[in-house]
Amino acid sequence: MISIKDYAKEKGVSYEAIRQSVDRYKDELEGHVIKQGKTRYLDDVAAAILDSKRAGNPVVIVNEDKDERIAALEKENKALLQRVAALQDQLLQEKERVTLLQQEKIELLQPPEVPEEPKKWWQFWK
C-alpha cells in the first residue's frame, strides 16, 4: 500500500492530479482505496488501474529553451526600435517638407506688390 502523496511523488506529478484521478475513477477503484485518518492509501490494484489510465492519457511537457526565446525576442525588439527610429526620422523630414510647401503656398497666394508710381510734378502739392 502506498499513500496518494507518495504515489504522486513517485510518478512525478502533483498530489492534486492524483487526487483528482482517484475521484474521477472512484467506481473502478472502489474497495482499493483505503482511508486511515485523513490519509488515503492505494493498494497494488488501485496503483495498477491508475497507471493504466495515466498511460492512456500521457502528459506532454514542452520544454522550450527560455534563454533562446528571450534572446530572439530581444533581437526582434532591437530591430523594431531601429525601425521606429527610422520612421520617426522620415516623419520629421516629411513635416519639414510640408512646412516649406505651406510657406511657398502662402507666398504665392499673396497679391503681388505693385510698385508705387512716381508722383507727377503737379501731385507734389496735394
Score class of each variant (00 low, 15 high):
P58Y: 06
P58G: 07
V59H: 10
V59F: 03
V60T: 10
V60A: 12
V60W: 05
V62G: 02
V62W: 09
V62T: 04
V62Y: 15
V62M: 12
E64A: 15
E64R: 06
E64I: 15
D65T: 09
K66R: 12
K66F: 03
D67H: 10
D67Y: 05
D67V: 06
D67F: 07
E68Y: 07
A72M: 13
A72I: 04
A72C: 02
A72E: 08
L73C: 07
L73R: 07
L73T: 03
E74Q: 13
E74L: 15
E74G: 03
K75A: 08
K75Q: 06
E76A: 13
E76S: 04
E76C: 04
E76T: 11
E76F: 02
N77A: 12
K78W: 06
K78E: 04
A79S: 03
L80N: 02
L80E: 00
L80F: 05
L81R: 14
L81G: 02
L81K: 12
Q82A: 13
Q82G: 09
R83L: 10
R83E: 02
R83G: 00
R83Q: 05
V84L: 03
V84W: 02
A85E: 01
A85W: 01
A85Q: 08
A85I: 00
A86Q: 02
A86E: 02
L87E: 00
L87K: 11
D89K: 00
D89W: 00
Q90T: 04
Q90E: 13
Q90S: 09
L91D: 06
L91K: 14
L92I: 01
L92Q: 12
Q93D: 07
E94H: 10
K95C: 09
K95T: 14
K95I: 03
E96W: 07
E96N: 11
E96P: 11
R97K: 13
R97T: 07
V98M: 05
V98I: 13
L100M: 10
L100F: 07
L100T: 11
L101I: 04
L101M: 12
L101V: 08
L101C: 03
L101T: 06
Q102G: 13
Q102W: 06
E104F: 12
E104R: 05
E104L: 08
K105H: 05
I106F: 09
I106C: 03
I106D: 11
E107L: 15
E107V: 11
L108A: 07
L108E: 07
L108S: 04
Q110W: 09
Q110L: 14
Q110G: 04
P111V: 06
P111D: 04
P111A: 15
